[in-house]
């Protein structure tokens, strides 16, 4: 029988030192990884370090940044707008339970196969695919003082409920938070539905046989089994709460009225590209990174601890 080509042409190699074998293959393997690694190193890992370095500088974006020590951070402590932004982010964090409960409840509702559930599942996902820019522009028109919402309220005799949605310092931040929750709940629904689909139905049935009420089943069986999924979603929205607001605020309120809807990410952008204080903005970024690290780490630790 003839030997196939290729194999025979490679001469027998001598001097087998086991440590060095397959070295050629090792190189090829790294070649697969290299482009991605280089890109990540240059555009993510290096910038993380650079963000910290720039936080200790003063930089206007034109001249070279020069080191000013801790003074950016000292200024941050005295910065009213920054503190206000932090406070607004804190308000968002306080709203996180709603951000969890809404998709959770909706997913449970869909899971009971309420009439038209396929349609609902599809439609609830619609805001997710739309850009926050589009949503911002849309709500900018709809919620305007003389916009369709107020128009509709007035026409049905509920004029008393009409508000300056985007111009009332007490109202605008809740409106913005509401829009973000509305725009992202579709993802949460999908995630919780995936969790519910993996639920151990036998345990639910066992609880039914034991005579548990729907609420008891929900509380003692479903909730506990979904806890890892809830944890997953929570981590996602905690990260989102620091980053998902910029495009909406940029298009909807520009941080206004006044500074009523300034969030940390919007503040960072404004300091850097409106005021031209990029070093200072870097310091905001570093604080933000630190907060997210602590929050997410603490959250995961807390959830792990509660489960065990």
């Amino acid at each position: 029988m003839t030997a196939s080509s290729g194999a025979g042409s490679v001469g027998p190699r001598t001097g087998r030192r086991h440590g060095a074998r397959h070295s050629g293959r090792g190189l090829t393997r790294w070649l697969f990884l290299l482009p991605a690694l280089v890109l990540l190193a240059v555009l993510i890992v290096y910038p993380i370090g650079d963000a910290i370095r720039l936080a200790f500088t003063s930089w206007d974006g034109f001249s070279a940044p020069h080191s000013i020590g801790l003074s950016n951070f000292e200024d941050l402590l005295k910065d009213k707008r920054f503190k206000e932004s932090l406070l607004h982010n804190l308000a968002i964090v306080v709203a996180i339970p709603i951000w969890i409960a809404v998709p959770y409840a909706v997913a449970c509702g869909i899971h009971t196969k309420v009439a038209g559930w396929r349609f609902f599942r599809l439609v609830f996902f619609l805001p997710v695919v739309l850009s926050p820019v589009v949503l911002g522009a849309y709500y900018g028109i709809v919620l305007a003082e003389s916009g369709p919402l107020n128009g509709a309220l007035r026409s049905v005799g509920l004029g008393g409920l009409a508000h300056e949605w985007l111009n009332d310092p007490a109202l605008t931040l809740p409106v913005v938070i509401g829009i973000i929750i509305w725009a992202t709940f579709g993802v949460g629904v999908l995630i919780f539905l995936a969790g519910l689909a993996n639920l151990d139905e036998e345990i639910v049935e066992a609880a039914q046989v034991d005579g548990a009420s729907r609420w008891q089943i929900q509380r003692h069986v479903v909730f506990w089994q979904l806890l890892p999924v809830i944890e997953f979603w929570t981590v996602i929205i905690v990260i989102a709460s620091f980053t998902a607001f910029f495009p909406l605020i940029y298009t909807l309120t520009k941080g206004g009225p006044g500074t009523a809807t300034f969030t940390v990410d919007f503040d960072l952008y404004s300091e850097a590209f409106t005021s031209g204080r990029l070093g200072y903005a870097s310091a905001i970024g570093v604080v933000m990174m630190f907060i997210i690290l602590v929050t997410c780490g603490g959250l995961v630790a807390l959830l792990r601890w509660r489960r065990s």
């Binding site: 194999a7 490679v10 001469g11 190699r13 087998r16 074998r21 397959h22």
Partner: peptide, 10 residues
């Protein structure tokens, strides 16, 4: 032929 260091395909 010594194939100890060769890949499966070779």
């Amino acid at each position: 032929a010594d194939v100890t260091d060769r890949e499966a395909r070779d």
